[in-house]
Amino acid sequence: MGKIATREAYGNALAKLIVENENIVVLDADLTKSTKTNEAKKVCPQRHFNMGIAEGNMMSVAAGLAASNKIVYASSFAMFATGRAFEQVRNSICYPHLNVKICGTHAGITVGEDGASHQSVEDIAIMRAIPNMKVIVPCDGKETEEVIRAIAEIDGPCYVRLGRSAVEDVHHENYHFKLGKGEVLHEGSKVALIATGMMVQECLKAVEILNKEGIDPTVINMPSIKPIDEELIERVAKSHDVIITCEEHNMIGGLGSAVAEVVVKKCPVKMDMVAMKDTFGESGKPNELLHKYGLDSEAIVKKVRKNI
């Protein structure tokens, strides 16, 4: 498949799905070329609605469509889909458990030059906190395609977090996503890295460096943040000295918190986090920002060394 952004894989998958499933309706908020829902619009313009720059309205419209047996994919930047429209998502969509799939693109700091106002570092936390909501963060093109298909079959609201920048392929063509399941990408010892989204590729890069130093961490891809794979976390907690979570998100409320909630309950073990340190991002190139805010493979390597 090659290196593509998860938003691009989303656009391609949705364009196939909308043709196959006539219950699907797509909504966007003046960002169809960025979120890539324009691909679905090209093949099925009659079931794609541009709602204009009005995200709050869009989410409640999505609820009305879903209350009329439609499966709605509603997109904007992650910041506005989850932030601007938070309470519409909570009360119009999640409370009545309606079938709306919120696909937020341009999540995290790898948005780059647009800067902090557009860099959602709290979307996992706020979406995860809503009852009935499921939260999924795919890490590459193949996984995105799988997730976009899978959520059409899942009853109720889902939030899918997608990125702007291209990411490395982690998965083969025969990979299957399962809600609530994590995936062991590499079985090592002592340290377990649990990552989500684009941080999975950074973990794999970090492991290459660490292997040369004789350190061999386990690497786990955790696309399903809610529900989360409690069994796998418990097993890892029991068999490793330390768990380090890696996410392009604030250290409060995201993957790290979700894993910690399981760990404290099932098998307390030392944990550390690679995440945004409760700060806003800024303008810059994605790679420069990942470096500055300690989210690149180098930062993961340092964090592992510190914990060993």
Binding site: G115, S283, G284
Partner: peptide
Amino acid sequence: RKIDSKLQGH
């Protein structure tokens, strides 16, 4: 729009 600049994208 460059890193460390006061002149943020927004």
